[in-house]
Design a binder for these strands. Structure first.
Length: 600
RNA sequence: GGUCCUGUGGAGCAGUUGGAGUGCUCGCCGCCCUGUCAAGGCGGAGGUCGCGGGUUCAAGUCCCGUCAGGACCGCCA
């Protein structure tokens, strides 16, 4: 080491010690005869005092080596804002290790730059304490997860990132294969199939901090490559996985957020979550629950509601406390808000703050009877606003109300930003209808029906429930998992229902079905969205903050300028333009890579 | 694929009714300064208002297109 001490660790007890420090010039205050330099390294900042002219040439972010003596600061000059504020280092020797050009963005905790500039100069951005601490927190989170899992005899096992697609639904990133032109690897969307194979292999307890790839549009909480803490166990039930998830989460929150999670974390069924909150990831930091009015409003002549009721649909409402005081413009704004999410509008009734009398466009369409009991039916008080949604598809109307509920909480300031509200959402449905009238797996096709539905999910696919569970905090899904199917007969029945032919199943994941011939153990698992978890733990609002070198929304990396075009030579070698050769072999059945025309 | 917001010296912003590239804070360069800690004082440099077109006597400002960034919907666990 070329230094003897870390700058941020020096304290009054070090007074009198001669130290050698190395770091960056965070700030300089040049008084002519005396020059103060805040020297920053990974441990923090300390004030260095120069009385020699040579420090005059120092500029921000010069990398320097300083020899000096730790002194208590003169009376009245301590800085209580700094951990090192009681002392300073009086420099006797200065070496400039490297100079810094004028900075393209300020390296300063009090100043923010635009996102793309921060990403282009991410290495400067990360010299700031906030961004740096987010990465350090993530490192700690990794360590905590490993501690918990190794204490329980888990094995950390790496699975391939050049593989074939896992059938999770999203678009794959593809990699051309030089040795077999016209064939392609897919980057994994998750290690799902490999971890199940590891269960067949008898590893029993697997985990991996796994990089996953999905070629879909990005968001503040979505990047093309992301990380999950991926876990799988054999010979366990749903409750075992939930207990494990709770231990990890409670350790993370207690050590990194200073919050003691109350265990066990409450569970809510998927159906209850939809009925009460209009979401499968409900934010439980506030109330404002949905109220179903399908039977209450039976017989109404208001066409929007009557139509939904007649079609066996759903009518419901959510109350905005104090919402009656909104201006006409604000109330109209809700219509635009609803239309922006693809709804026709958001019907509303406001209750007069004095009399409680219902008013508004919809009130004119409701009978006196329906109006008189409305406030009680939805639990509204005078001065409140009531928003309605109606649809033939129950879920569609509930999701609109659920989104309105969140918007109400935001606009009315109902959210306690310091709160952590955890829940498990359990008993998720197995299947949902596709636009084509078939069925698709809500989770993935290896999710097991629960005991009640195992033998008869075909009877009512829309009602069949899975051993699937998501962990939710403050309206963010931070993890999800399921008990997997380990019986070949159940798996083929699920494929049947999903309209996956035996040939197609064989083509897509024949290797897994083959493995399941050889005594697969019952197994279950969970994956925690690691970026999102670290984002929440660090109090950030974008996962980019907990990723060292993230990409922008367009999948662009301003730092390396990736992605880039390739040369003609690379293109030729990669075999990108090779035409798939016709072949007599059924793809994927004999362990031999053969050209395959991809279905998506 | 859709809706919305943003783009002005190196950074962050303001820029009124369309009237000269105007302003603010920080940074940068020079000088002064021995106790500051977001140091202070004086002086200075730095601009094709993202790009292209249009309207107009006149465009940073209005219109169209386009590029980049961001938020949301679709999509995506």
């Amino acid at each position: 080491m070329i230094r003897t001490h870390d700058a941020g660790t020096l304290r009054a007890s070090d007074a009198g010690t001669t130290v050698t420090l190395a770091g960056w010039v965070a700030r300089r205050r040049d008084h002519g005869g005396v020059i103060f330099v805040d020297l920053r390294d990974a441990s923090g900042v300390v004030q260095v005092v120069f009385r020699e002219e040579d420090a005059h040439a120092l500029r921000n972010e010069f990398c320097v080596l300083v020899v000096g003596e730790v002194n208590a600061r003169p009376e009245g000059n301590a800085n209580p804002e700094l951990a090192t504020g009681e002392i300073e280092v009086v420099a006797s020797q200065l070496t400039v290790l490297s100079e810094a050009a004028p900075l393209p963005l300020p390296v300063d905790d009090t100043i923010t730059a635009s996102d793309d500039l921060r990403l282009k100069y991410r290495y400067l951005d990360l010299r700031r304490s906030g961004p740096a601490n987010a990465l350090r927190l993530r490192s700690r989170a990794n360590q905590i997860a490993r501690e918990v899992l190794h204490a329980r005899d888990f094995n950390e096992i790496e699975t391939p990132t050049l593989t074939r697609s896992t059938p999770e639904g999203a678009r794959d990133f593809l990699v051309p294969v030089r040795l077999q032109p016209g064939t392609w690897y897919a980057l994994p969307q998750s290690p799902q199939l490999f971890k199940q194979l590891l269960m067949v292999a008898g590893m029993e307890r697997y985990y991996q901090i796994a990089r996953c790839y999905r070629d879909e549009d990005f968001r503040a909480d979505r990047q093309p490559e992301f990380t999950q803490l991926d876990i799988e166990m054999s010979f366990v039930t749903q409750d075992d996985i939930i207990a494990l998830g709770e231990e990890i989460v409670s350790r993370l929150w207690s050590e990194l957020a200073g919050y003691q999670v109350q265990l066990p974390i409450p569970r809510i069924t998927w159906t209850d979550a939809m009925n009460r909150y209009g979401s499968d990831k409900p934010d439980l930091r506030y109330g404002v629950e949905l109220n179903e009015l399908t039977s209450y409003l039976k017989g109404t002549e208001f066409r929007v509601f009557a139509g939904a009721i007649a079609a066996g649909g759903y009518v419901g409402a959510v109350v905005m406390p104090g919402g009656a005081s909104q201006t006409r413009k604000e109330l109209d704004g809700w219509q635009d808000w609803a239309k922006a999410r693809g709804a026709r509008g958001l019907a509303y009734v406001v209750l007069d703050a004095e009399t409680g009398e219902p008013r508004g466009p919809v009130a004119k369409n409701l009978s006196a009877e329906h109006l008189s009991g409305l406030a009680d039916a939805v639990g509204a008080k005078p001065g409140d606003a009531i928003f309605f949604a109606a649809a033939t598809e129950r879920r569609e109307a509930q999701e609109l109300l659920g989104a309105a509920r969140i918007e109400i909480a935001k606009r009315s300031g109902l959210i306690d930003e310091s709160a952590w509200a955890f829940c498990w959402v359990v008993d998720a449905p197995m299947f949902e209808k596709t636009d084509e009238g078939g069925w698709t797996a809500v989770h993935h096709p290896f999710t097991s029906p629960n005991a009640e539905w195992l033998d008869r999910f075909e009877e009512a696919p829309d009602q069949a429930l899975a051993y699937a569970y998501d962990i939710v905090v403050n309206g963010n899904e931070i993890g999800g998992g399921s008990v997997r199917i380990h019986r070949a007969d159940v798996q083929s029945r699920v494929f049947d229902l999903l309209g996956i032919s035996p040939e197609e199943a064989q083509d897509k994941f024949g290797f897994l079905l083959e493995a399941f011939k050889y005594g697969p153990p019952p197994h279950a698992g969970i994956a925690l969205g690691w970026d999102r978890t670290c984002m929440l733990l660090s109090g950030n609002e974008s996962i980019r903050e907990v990723i060292a070198f993230p990409k922008t929304r367009g999948g662009y990396d301003p730092l390396t300028t990736a992605p880039t075009p390739i040369t003609a030579q690379q293109r030729l070698e990669a075999g990108i333009d090779a035409k798939p050769k016709p072949t007599g072999v059924t793809p994927g059945t004999d362990g031999q890579a053969v050209p395959v025309e991809r279905s998506n």
